[in-house]
Write a protein that binds this DNA or RNA. Structure first.
Lengths: 236, 236
DNA sequence: GTCGATAGTGTCAAATCTGACAGACTTACG
DNA sequence: CGTAAGTCTGTCAGATTTGACACTATCGAC
């Protein structure tokens, strides 16, 4: 347990394969007393259909069930994780809006769990879940381990997003010029092209030129979409 | 040091005044061996001029200097914090692009420091800095305390943003109807009103009606600005 | 049973954006 | 000295958005 931090940081920095990284995370979660571990990464875009990648060592049948019934959309732990950075512990109360899910999870031996999320500057949200079948999480255990659990959440996110982001979201690799950023920021703040042309002392045509370049670079359908993409991915 | 976690969480949940909360954070930072502490909170909007709130117990003269020379805009620790969730330690290298700032900080007895940021679901970025005048941060110290420092970053952010967000950014209090969210998501993904009307099987006029309501609610100048605001504040 | 929030629809003129035509100037880099 | 990237500018037609006019209907709360 001494080598925790070094090993983690090494893994974080060196491992290039997400599956391999997950195995490392899993081994840490076992050291913390949890047989099961799940890591999910949700991309910020598109807003109408944000993709989520999942890694876990849950029973295969439960994984299939979860997928088939689209439990991701109603899982209360996920909903919490999308709104708050605070850790959350599985309770009957928490799962009351999704009793089916809860009962089935229990039937697969997933009765005790803890989850926390994190969000990076590209807008990616990562969620780490640690779970086991029995042995409720005690106050004492929590006090002893919550620092490490929170840390693991961070480390897992940093590693996972480093591995996955560039492939999943080409747009994060795009670089915008200073002028493009400037114009796009004003656009995001609700200025029209002609207003921006006054602010920056250039022709309206030039403003539209820059905007059009960004639209092309980000593969967007129009100005609004381009602005959203750039802002959500932290390009502005 | 035993009561760390309880006290922190209590403070986090109960204290309503940001200054009072900062005093609590400061006391923890002292327990961790740092005389000085700074907490900054940056709001996500407006993009052309994002406001930042600062709390710290630095020498008054240094605070004035920092403000007067607008060091916030070039501070390498801030720039790092805006791009990465990883903690960072003050080094000569780090400050080489801002040697003036670094020399002046040293002259005020701020030579050793550590900083980490976090980002919440409203897009607010918080940054915690722990500093002292001498005694370099050793590997051993870091290994012993980095979990707690990361934790404190989180706790500070949760408390501070709870205190400050509702006042600073009225828009976070706005609630959008389901239909408004739906329409706005499609808008963010680059669909035109007429396209959305097809997708949702309603009249184009109705789409514009919903969009206009959101524009009004969020006090935005137009569709693009409203969409950005909603997306950045996690309303979508 | 009225009130408020939500959802839906119509028309029309002016403002704004989009796309496609094409070209010029500067700066950094090799 | 050429080349690439970034910045800047022009015109014009057609699509889209915006703002202001009104109106109907449902649903839950008081």
């Amino acid at each position: 347990m001494k080598a925790w931090q070094e090993t983690q940081l090494q893994a974080l920095q060196s491992i290039q394969c997400a599956h391999q990284l997950f195995q490392t995370i899993l081994s840490f979660s076992k050291e913390l007393g949890f047989d099961h571990c799940a890591y999910g990464l949700r991309m910020p875009l598109p807003l109408t259909n944000p993709k989520t990648l999942m890694f876990n060592n849950y029973p295969t049948a439960w994984q299939a069930q979860y997928q088939a019934k689209n439990y991701l959309a109603i899982d209360p732990t996920v909903q919490h994780a999308m709104r708050s950075l605070l850790p959350i512990i599985w309770t009957d109360d928490l799962f009351s809006p999704a009793s089916d899910l809860w009962e089935e999870a229990c039937s697969f031996g997933l009765r005790v769990g803890w989850a926390q999320s994190s969000r990076d500057f590209n807008g990616f949200v990562g969620m780490l879940t640690l779970a086991r079948s029995n042995e409720p999480i005690t106050e004492i255990e929590l006090d002893a381990n919550k620092f490490k659990m929170a840390w693991l959440t961070q480390v897992a996110h940093l590693g996972m997003s480093r591995c996955l982001t560039p492939k999943l979201m080409q747009e994060v690799n795009v670089t915008l010029s200073n002028r493009e950023i400037e114009v796009l920021r004003w656009t995001a703040d609700g200025k029209t092209s002609s207003e921006i042309s006054c602010i920056l002392n250039i022709a309206e045509r030039t403003v539209n030129f820059h905007i059009n370049n960004v639209v092309t670079k980000l593969n967007a359908a129009n100005k609004t979409s381009a602005t959203i993409k750039a802002a959500m991915l932290g390009l502005l």
